[in-house]
Nucleic acid binder design. Structure first.
Lengths: 345, 345
DNA sequence: TTGAAAGCGATACCAC
DNA sequence: GTGGTATCGCTTTCAA
């Protein structure tokens, strides 16, 4: 493969001049020189070596994306949008699956650092874990997606940007949709364990219930996902929780699922128990994954503006790599309700 | 960040010696020297710069994975298995989405080449396109997943490995499952357009029908996916084709869908048309994506051994990078039937 | 407007 | 056993 020296020799100029062309510094250059160099590049089928450029400049033109598992449709959708946003800026995406294991997270960050990747988007992980701050201290710029920080950390000086949907609004939107459909006995169904994003969704849900005057005890139904569930853990959890719902008396008439995958499992479980959706129980999810519309009856869902969010994440990453003095910030995006058939009207 | 020279200075040795440690050449080394160097690395929090190593050695420790869209669950599942196989060998995966556009494919290959990535797995793309051979000519090692080559190219000397499920067996397995359930009037439902993998599936399907003595004309029902369908194109196509199925008289009593996504759409469309599954029509898919089991009634499906396939792909990639003299080969994997509720018994 | 040369961080050959 | 040094391909002052 031809290198910059071959091109220079072939065009009868110096390496620096060729480099100037590569970097767009052609305004002061004689037309004729430029033409000769471009011709030489073409004739030699020259492609600049990014690795060498990177070694010299320290710039990688790659960003990392760390997700729990790409098989989860929510993260696949995120990956797509991040890929598009990155591509628009001539960046490539290096994918990391943590499979929810901390050592995988660490290893990924290590590797990104060693590969000169300066910016990483971290989805749905607890950002207070020390390896994130350590990476930040070593010059890595991090953006968190769908924040999972305990409140006390969030309030302190945080070294990362955070981009998420307004989860309070999302919870409220979902509950209000059920209430508008005439539901009186609603409940929120979720995986056990408190995270910022879960807490906010529940808060919004309870707000709406309070405002409608239908607040009661025990409005949150929760269970632990089993690792054994594997790829479909959320859905399996939903199915398992359906059993818990069915035992309540009187039966709830409306459910908000913390995410669509869980909601889909919930619907399947309820149906298996002989319950009609939405006639007996209405269900609304959060996330609006592509599947939501595919499963009869279509699952109504609260949708985050993923493309906009991905765009901001990539933009902030690049901006803060450029100028580390920029202070981290929190970005909140407004969700939209997508109406399908799982909620009575 | 500390570099190799800092470590050498700190340990009072030369860079060569440190480099020897980095590359495991420690057998001839004095224990005490080794200990001093390791200590220096720890004290300086030294991490070797992979970019520099790569510039020198030409080895990237990354492989590329080119898929039509990561949002498609089949490719998400593939990506996961490839990621695991790569991780087992200390490699990372660079993801490329083509969104079915040829220029994206080209750009991805260019970029991989420029980044020093020597091995790329290409999923579900027509390998006879010239940019693949061009990349191969420039030293890139390619493995094709789920081969999409016209027969004439396949028979010639092919510069790539090819790894796929035995699609003839898959088509036969699916048809036999319907036949075993008592279906007499079966059909194969697919996206229009001939590729190797589609052709093979249809061939297996027809074989089984012939053997059962139920071969007839017009056993293949097909339609074109609309770009407008977007993420859910296969599913939407399935739904559209359901309309075509319903118009047949007499109605078929068993359908093989070319893939699960299409099968899921097919089931939805049939149900909307008031047809009971599997009472009136049985449906079986091919791929066994995680969704298949989630949608009531669970979609029976023919499953490729993805993990094994990913493993072979990565292994071949690394082997052929190591020794380009190794001749390309074709690998065929045997599928398994996963029984769910969408086929009567 | 163009060129010479130092340097990014590691590797590996050849001395000693 | 360990060290000196040219080299990978490119960027970037500084001079001319």
């Amino acid at each position: 493969m031809a290198n910059i020296r071959d091109v220079a020799r072939h065009a009868g100029v110096s390496v620096s001049t060729v480099s100037n062309v590569l970097n767009g510094r052609v305004d002061q250059m004689r037309q004729e020189t430029l033409a000769r160099i471009e011709q030489a590049m073409r004739e030699l089928n020259y492609h600049p070596n990014r690795v060498a450029q990177q070694l010299k400049t320290g710039q990688a033109k790659m960003i990392g994306l760390l997700v729990p598992s790409i098989v989860n449709p929510s993260f696949a959708a995120l990956a797509r949008e991040v890929d598009l946003a990155a591509k628009a800026r001539q960046y490539r995406v290096l994918l990391g699956n943590t499979y929810r294991q901390e050592d995988e997270e660490q290893a990924f960050l290590e590797d990104m650092l060693a590969h000169g990747v300066r910016g990483v988007i971290v989805a749905a992980s607890a950002m207070e874990k020390p390896h994130f701050s350590r990476a930040a201290a070593r010059g890595m710029v991090l953006v968190n997606y769908d924040s999972r920080m305990p409140a006390d950390v969030a309030s302190g000086a945080m070294p990362f940007d955070s981009v998420s949907m307004d989860n309070v609004a999302a919870g409220r939107l979902a509950a209000e949709h059920l209430i508008a459909g005439g539901c009186q006995r609603i409940a929120f169904v979720t995986e056990a364990g408190r995270t910022m994003s879960r807490g906010h969704k529940i808060e919004g849900f309870l707000d709406a219930a309070r405002q409608a005057g239908i607040l009661r005890e025990q409005m949150v139904i929760e269970g632990k996902a089993l690792a054994a569930y594997g790829d479909t853990e959320m859905t399996d959890l939903g199915r398992a929780l359906a059993a818990q719902v069915v035992q309540q008396s009187p039966l709830p008439d409306g459910l908000v699922a913390i995410n669509d995958a869980l909601g889909i499992g919930l619907m399947a479980g309820l149906r298996e128990a002989g319950i009609a959706i939405p006639a007996q129980i209405s269900v609304v999810g959060i996330d609006n994954i592509p599947l939501a519309g595919l499963i009869p009856p279509g699952l109504s869902s609260v949708m985050p503006p993923l493309a906009d969010m991905a765009d901001i994440m990539v933009e902030r990453l690049l901006a803060r790599i450029e100028d580390p003095a920029i202070a981290p910030q929190e970005f909140l995006f407004h969700p939209t309700l997508i109406r399908r058939q799982s909620v009575k009207t």
